[in-house]
Computed example of a mutant assay.
Amino acid sequence: MANEFPQTLTIAGTDSGGGAGVMADLKTMQERQVFGTAVVVAVTAQNTLGVQDFMALPQKLIDEQFASLAADLKISACKTGMLADAAHVHGVVENLKRYDFGPLTVDPVMIAKGGAALLADDAVATVRDELVPLADVLTPNLPEAKRLTGLPLDDKEEMEAAAVELQNLGAKNVVIKGGHEATPDQASDFVLLADGRSFWLSAPRVDTVRTHGTGDTLSSCITAELAKGADFESAIRLAKDYVTAAIAHPIAVGHGHGPLNHWAYNQGGTI
């Protein structure tokens, strides 16, 4: 019967280098055995060395992508990534309110791994006020959590306080990624669930520059697991393991911040 297979949606920008954005999302979804679809919001000229240029698509074309998917497919979970500017964030929010694509994971992408801005400064408030309240799972890294809350996040206690603040803004479940934290041996994320339970997820820090697309990969893995019926805690824990394996077993692509090895987890870390 049509539409029985789990289907997911990424709403984001492309990465011509293949390591992040829509490309990383679809690779992850495929590896987690769901059928991935995409609404492309922006197109980038990008490689492992950085983002050379990008252009957001006309809102009419974005609206038509949403309508096209809703007319034919049965999306069980969705996620957002790069949304470019305030107008496009607002347009995506309106579509998310119009169509039921299951639980929403919001990755509030603001800056690329190489430092290029992927979200206009005036759009941060729109993400905070319009998009975050729709999030079933919110997955900011430390710089993004700082921008959204205004808190310094210099230690674990402040990360925990920021998660509470993000939940107060409307996000149900919050994952603050600690990959930017200056700890030499552990990469620790703080998780605050909708029911008030909280915990830390830690993994050994790997000395590598091949971490391009980490946030996209985590959020799309969560999305895939939710589409298959996993509860939020299980989806988050598995996504952490998936990303850890993808970083720990790198592939040599590009001369800069290389991509993750998206198939490492499913093949026991081998390539």
Rank of each mutant, 00 (worst) to 15 (best):
L9P: 03
L9A: 01
T10G: 00
V22I: 15
V22D: 03
M23G: 07
K27Y: 12
M29R: 09
Q30D: 13
V34M: 11
V40G: 01
V43Y: 10
Q46D: 11
T48V: 08
L49M: 14
I62D: 06
E64M: 11
Q65L: 10
K74M: 14
S76A: 14
A77F: 00
K79M: 04
L83P: 03
A86T: 04
V89T: 04
V89R: 03
V93I: 02
N95V: 00
K97T: 02
D100L: 05
F101E: 02
T105V: 15
P108E: 05
V109H: 01
V109Q: 00
I111Q: 12
K113Y: 06
D122M: 03
A123K: 00
V124W: 02
V124H: 03
E130D: 15
E130N: 10
L131F: 05
D136H: 15
P140W: 09
L142C: 08
K146I: 13
T149E: 00
G150E: 07
D154S: 13
D155A: 04
A161S: 12
A163D: 01
Q167V: 10
L169R: 10
N173F: 08
I176V: 14
D185K: 11
L201R: 10
G213L: 08
D216N: 13
T217L: 03
A224E: 09
A227L: 05
G229T: 03
A239T: 07
A246G: 08
P250M: 06
P250H: 12
N266D: 11
Q267D: 11
